[in-house]
């Protein structure tokens, strides 16, 4: 008798973790060539950030891991381990291959260069006559 082993695909869904899900404070600004998304992700290490762009939906997912002192009594708490999750719908077409993301001092900075066809073009005005 053979037993067929079926591989169970476990989808990694971070929301199943028992952590509060926070929406990070985010700044978004646009220049002629790119859209820049800046999000506060305190306590998040580089390896715990996931940025995806699907169709036009940009999703930032992250998990904060802050080492907390052991053997001491917690007397006051305003923050703790958390998940950060937020999605934005982009209105402009971006160049998917040139997206860059970097994290520094707990701030994620995403640079999304606009696709060539979405960049403003200067139209030369010719005088007639």
């Amino acid at each position: 008798m053979t037993t067929q082993s079926t591989e169970v695909q476990v989808q990694r869904n971070e929301q199943t973790r028992d952590l509060p899900v926070l929406s990070p404070a985010t700044d978004i600004h646009e220049t002629e060539k790119e859209i820049v998304v800046v999000a506060d992700l305190p306590g998040v290490r580089q390896e715990h950030v996931e940025v995806t762009l699907e169709n036009r939906v940009l999703t930032i997912g992250a998990r904060s891991t802050v080492e907390e002192p052991a053997g001491k009594e917690l007397v006051y708490r305003e923050f703790g381990p958390a998940e950060y999750r937020r999605s934005f719908t982009l209105t402009e077409e971006v160049d998917r291959n040139a997206i860059s993301a970097r994290i520094k001092n707990g701030v994620l900075r995403l640079t999304l260069p606009k696709a060539a066809e979405a960049q403003p073009r200067r139209i030369e005005v010719l005088a007639e006559g």
Binding site: E68, K72, V75, Y76, R77, E78, F79, G80
Partner: peptide, 14 residues
Amino acid sequence: WNPPVDQFPALNLW
């Protein structure tokens, strides 16, 4: 704990 804190920075104490 209560995520929305109205003061910057959020603090914890042990």
